[in-house]
Write a protein that binds this DNA or RNA. Structure first.
Lengths: 73, 73
DNA sequence: ATAATATGTAAAGCGAACTTGACAAAATAT
DNA sequence: ATATTTTGTCAAGTTCGCTTTACATATTAT
């Protein structure tokens, strides 16, 4: 799933490790989410979005899911 | 995690099975989320919230997570 | 140029999210 | 009262999110 995490993180000049610490997870988890290796859990998605003072919908891109629902997959 | 799913579902007079079909999952999964047996994934949370034309933050209750972050757990 | 920091990735392992099939109890309809 | 629908739950199995450890490469600082 595409996200704006890298963009928001860079804007604050934070490393993956610093963001990880801020949301109580590991650098590898942040990296995996940024490079779309897997999708964040709901609680982690909330922590990340909230850290950047944004809504989950603003940080995570659900257009593919909407597409799936349109296609009734 | 507490949610407003049951409340929203009842307001529309939907069964768990009907909601499940609408968001492409199973009755058991909807039930498990309603009775807080486990937490929805991010994509499923989006589908459910979107189905009710609400934001994820409006349907799912993150107050416990905010509490944890305050307590720095 | 070299040291330090940041990023990408991989493997092994654990628990959580989800599925399918099934059964019983509760609620609703006839 | 009885049939139907709805809800709760359980067990077994699969996949996914996440952690830890580790190593290699890339970027930045001195």
């Amino acid at each position: 799933m595409k996200t704006r995490i890298k963009e928001l993180r860079k804007a604050q000049k934070l490393s993956q490790e610093e963001l990880a610490a801020a949301v109580c997870t590991t650098r590898q988890t942040i990296n995996a989410i940024e490079v779309e290796k897997y999708t964040a859990s709901l609680p982690l998605a909330y922590k990340i979005a909230h850290y950047f003072k944004q809504s989950i919908e603003d940080v995570f891109d659900f257009s593919q899911i909407e597409q799936e629902m349109r296609d009734n997959v």
